[in-house]
Write a protein that binds this DNA or RNA. Structure first.
Lengths: 408, 408
DNA sequence: ATATTTAAATCAAATGCTTTGAGTTAAGGC
DNA sequence: GCCTTAACTCAAAGCATTTGATTTAAATAT
């Protein structure tokens, strides 16, 4: 899988059927419904929906839940999406850890495993992944695997440095190698984008078609879903929010900028702050426990950081609102819930934002799924998303096709 | 047309054919090709491509350009996209002016008209539009009309104020009314998004699938195309770049923010600066002529503005790069070419950007189409884009469908 | 109670496109 | 000249959706 949209593929009857299956599944994931309702919503004939439903029931992806007696007429047989009908794998690779989750189609964890990584070369890690997967194969069918790593990919001065560096992980090669190693279709993406999809599937953004997800990993990531589709950009690096400048002339970042958001609002930044204040040992261990503790005590050192971080985040969220016009912005990832809640409470969002819309139905900012497994669940969500969301298929270029013509 | 992606529609044989037509046309718009090549690129059979081509040739959208003798085997008959095969209309409505362009499918102008608007109520303006269209109907088929207005739509404190306000122009109603008035399919969007599509069709971004277009209108707009699709956001307000904060604590903007980009880099900002410097009469007339003149003289007052604007733009472009990961960022719109060139020359882009990518093939920033007709051409581009780009069709909700479930 | 109305679901063609496989045409290479 | 390669065409087959007539089942009216 590459990130450029090379050439959109043509369709035939089979592709059309696959599309319609996704339409039906996607609708049913939102709410249980009878066949006639689905037909009306999708524009398909009831007969077609009947045929598809019969297949989906056979496969176990959908289950009838009895008749609904509502108005006149024969009451419809209501069908519901069956999360237990199949499973998916999600892998998150970080320089020091490999995380695997096995979830059902609802995103509910069946198995979670974390193992430390001594080496980070793809061959070794893929071997570990295959081993883990082998050891936890469920009885239900496994539809595919998601694989996420921290971004950005292939950026001078950003990718090779810092604690998230994974050398030799080429986005163009890895998915194919992973498919070979796992024997499953593999969906590859960066952690924040995947985490955003997870949030849209079962979390705070469920049911939304346009939203932004700020992901606290080591740094700060961003996944944006616009009109139901994740934004990936030309090289899969969209959403590199950690290095947007919120304080011109502010703290120097290793990326070369001054005043990067990540310097003010990230795990690393709070860790550094607490070490400097003597609230954490110099090696920075025990951050999560300390955060919970300090938060409970309303520790002033922490509050100082919260205010600074909230100011920086407010600017960033204002930006995201004006650039992406999301239904809402969600904050989640590897920080304690209570801390994220506090950050949200301390936000002062800029007034000049398209988020102040008369048609708005959602809060501007919400807390999403927290915890260190967020990205791995996101990886699983990549597969689920692919299963239930209609899409435009791309075709890989065959022979030395021009990848992107030069800007004239 | 609404901006929420309500529910994706199912496909049948006819829809499939329409999709495949777009695939073929889209490929041919990039480069002339033989049928076998198109088949290979699209994954369709040669027979299908043959059938589609026969239709497209009959309709005049595609023309054979002779055989290409290349390697062994029977030389392919090469077909080219025929821009003259049909025409499209583009309308731009501003509070004081209605602009219409009639272009061929290559985006080349056949007719351009501007008329002043005394009233801005939709009924009157739609009447004027119908009148203009009527008066300039070409002999070739007209595929549709694009209609653009300045954004944002429905935003408290932004939409109703300032020189771009068009009260009573409801994005949910206008397209339908326009279709009735014109008797053509109408594509509605905000000016900058449409202008971006135009740039991707024939301008600096042609052939690119991910790019950002900064549009100098009265204020400063942004259109973003990601993976071939324009980003519109939940309410069609994505790309409201004028009100992102580039100078925290800087100049007060009427939106309520301090330090908005628009205060530093826009027609209004340079106009205000030149008036303050006495280089322009207090009513601000004659801006364009003055700009050309002052530029030729390397006027110091103007240079001061250019440096300030370039600094603000550099920050904004850095942001866009990190958030959208475009192949390049294009600057265009209602400023003289030479001034845009100078702005680009004076940029100092931040180093911490995913644009510093090893796979990069395009300049980070380019000048695009300038002139006051940019947005109207963009409106026309909406129709052309729709004609040649495969898409996921949405279905309008039928009866009291939940438009967007509340963020839980 | 019984008949009527309304709506869902099924059955059995029919329809629309795409694909397949055999055959034809036109060029380069030996 | 003959073989190979590749593009293209023709006719039949295949796949999935649609259409129109029927059946089923509940709410309402008589």
């Amino acid at each position: 899988m590459s990130f450029h949209l090379h050439q959109i593929a043509g369709k035939n009857a089979e592709k059309t059927k696959a599309h319609n299956r996704r339409v039906v599944l996607g609708y049913l994931r939102g709410q249980p419904a009878g066949r006639a309702e689905i037909a009306k919503a999708s524009g398909l004939s009831t007969q077609t929906v009947s045929n598809l439903m019969a297949e989906l029931v056979t496969e176990g992806l959908v289950v009838p839940t009895g008749r609904r007696r509502a108005a006149r007429g024969q009451p419809p047989v209501v069908y519901a999406f069956n999360p237990s009908g199949a499973a998916v794998l999600g892998f998150e690779v970080r320089p020091d850890t490999l995380t695997m989750v096995l979830t059902d189609l609802g995103g509910t964890a069946l198995v979670t495993r974390q193992i430390p990584l001594a080496q980070t070369d793809p061959a070794h890690v893929l071997g570990q992944m295959a081993m883990l997967a082998q050891a936890h194969m469920p009885h239900m069918p496994v539809l595919g695997a998601g694989l996420v790593i921290p971004g950005p990919f292939g950026v001078d001065g950003l990718s090779g440095v810092g604690p998230t560096a994974l050398p030799d992980w080429d986005p163009a090669q890895i998915p194919l190698q992973a498919e070979a190693a796992l024997g499953l279709p593999v969906h590859f993406d960066k952690d924040a984008t995947a985490a955003a999809l997870a949030e849209g599937m079962a979390g705070a953004a469920s049911g939304l078609s346009s939203y932004a997800f700020l992901y606290f990993g080591t740094g700060l990531g961003l996944g944006v879903v616009a009109q139901g589709q994740p934004i990936r950009g030309a090289f899969g690096n969209a959403g590199e929010v950690g290095h947007i400048i919120v304080h011109p002339g502010g703290l120097i970042c290793e990326c070369g900028n001054a005043g990067c958001l990540e310097q003010y609002a990230s795990r690393l930044s709070v860790q550094r702050h607490l070490i400097a204040m003597g609230a954490l040992p110099p090696d920075g261990t025990g951050l999560d426990a300390a955060l919970v503790q300090l938060l409970a005590n309303q520790n002033q050192d922490l509050m100082v950081w919260v205010d600074t971080a909230a100011e920086a985040l407010s600017r960033a969220i204002g930006l995201l609102e004006n650039l992406f016009d999301p239904q809402c912005t969600v904050l989640g990832g590897a920080l304690p819930d209570a801390l994220i809640d506090l950050l949200i409470a301390r936000l002062s969002l800029p007034p000049g934002s398209v988020a102040r819309h008369s048609g708005r139905r959602n809060p501007r900012v919400l807390r999403g799924t927290s915890g260190t497994l967020t990205a791995a669940f996101g990886a699983a969500a990549l597969v689920i998303h692919d299963t239930v969301t209609p899409r435009l298929d791309a075709r890989a270029p065959d022979i030395a096709a021009t990848e992107s013509p030069p800007c004239p």
